[in-house]
Simulated assay, not measured.
Amino acid sequence: MINTMHTTAARPPVSAWVGLGANLGDARASVLAAIEALGRLPRTQLLRASSLYRSAPWQAEGADFINAVAELHTHLSAPDLLQELQALEQAAGRARPYRNAPRTLDLDLLAYGAARIESARLTLPHPRLHERAFVLWPLAEIAPERVSAAALERVAGQRIERLG
């Protein structure tokens, strides 16, 4: 028998950033529960999470979103982490009837260390993170070195509010 835990655990931890959002049901509770669930992922540690933010739908319709960004240290590979994130979305009742549909929970893998990945299933860093105030403002809160002032200026016209 091969001990896969040992070989998988030997992978050094990687910092990963996850964008969280919801605009159906109790969106605030969904995002807070998802932050807690990130801390329970296998071989993963939740380092910190931003405040919650309310933002207007971006290239979508529906109610305002509740958003946040979390930083993880994980021994999971990027594809395995994505699979875990998608399982959390499914557990929260995520449906994908059409692109940018309202959602009970959306978890986007924004960055995985310095990895650059382009595959049919995963592109890292997230290809649109620099266009989205609902990602940049919470990311700047917990990892200011990852977001330039110029990037924040480019999204200044998007409505976003930090919640208390």
Rank of each mutant, 00 (worst) to 15 (best):
N3L: 13
T8H: 13
R11C: 04
P12V: 07
V14Q: 12
S15V: 10
V18W: 08
G19L: 04
A22Y: 05
N23D: 06
N23P: 00
N23G: 05
L24E: 09
L24T: 02
L24C: 03
G25N: 03
G25D: 02
G25P: 01
G25E: 01
A27G: 06
V31T: 10
V31M: 12
A37C: 07
A37L: 05
L38K: 03
R40K: 12
R40V: 02
T44C: 08
T44I: 09
Q45R: 15
Q45N: 01
L46M: 08
A49W: 02
S51V: 12
L52Y: 07
A56S: 13
A56T: 14
A56Y: 02
P57S: 05
Q59Y: 03
Q59G: 14
A63K: 05
D64P: 00
A70Q: 00
L72R: 05
H73F: 06
T74G: 05
H75M: 07
L76E: 01
L76H: 03
S77H: 08
A78P: 00
D80E: 15
L81M: 08
L82V: 07
E84Y: 04
Q86C: 03
L88N: 06
A92N: 09
R94V: 08
R96G: 12
R96T: 14
Y98C: 09
A101S: 14
P102K: 13
R103H: 08
L107D: 08
D108Y: 14
L109T: 04
L109Y: 05
A111W: 04
A111H: 02
A111I: 01
Y112T: 00
G113Y: 03
G113E: 03
A115I: 05
I117N: 03
S119W: 08
S119L: 06
A120V: 13
R121M: 11
L122G: 07
R128A: 15
R128K: 14
L129I: 07
H130A: 12
E131W: 14
V135S: 12
W137H: 15
L139K: 10
E141P: 04
A143M: 04
A143F: 03
P144S: 00
E145D: 14
E145I: 00
R146I: 01
R146P: 01
S148E: 00
A149N: 05
A149W: 03
L152A: 06
R154S: 14
R154N: 10
R154T: 10
A156W: 07
A156Y: 04
Q158H: 11
Q158A: 11
Q158M: 12
R159P: 07
E161A: 04
E161Q: 12
R162G: 10
R162P: 05
L163Q: 11
L163V: 08
G164F: 04
